[in-house]
Design a protein around this nucleic acid. Sequence first.
DNA 1: ACGTTGACTCCTA
DNA 2: CTAGGAGCCAACG
Length: 125
Amino acid sequence: MNRSAWDGMIEIEDTFVEKVYEQVARIPFGKISTYGKIGELAGYPGAAREVGVAMSRVPEKSDLPCHRVVNKNGTLAPGHAFGGKEKQRKLLLQEGITFREDGLIYIEKHMWPDESGGEQLSLFA
DNA sequence: ACGTTGACTCCTA
DNA sequence: CTAGGAGCCAACG
């Protein structure tokens, strides 16, 4: 088709960033993931830093749930996103994410994908 | 091709 | 908690 058909469309780029966006978009409601894990899922293990950069490049109009991506420590972004950590914390709270008293997220509780033993997926009955 | 940069992660102090 | 340093990797000028 002509390029006119792509008018206004984002160019299809098979880049690292593209795949990262896909993985982030797959994070289910009420779950969170880490930069490193997202990069790993995207096929770029160890590229946690670039995942962060990719997030910063996300257009505001995008529906990407970037607030569900946190660093492994359980802390939120320094504040570049969402207009501050407080806002991100609120977004996560609305999704049922629980925080510790020190403000850190229970990573292990809401981590996605859930790779813990697989006791949940084992049930078929 | 090279040097910088960065919403990372791990370590030490 | 903060402050460095090192390793890591892709995007960008």
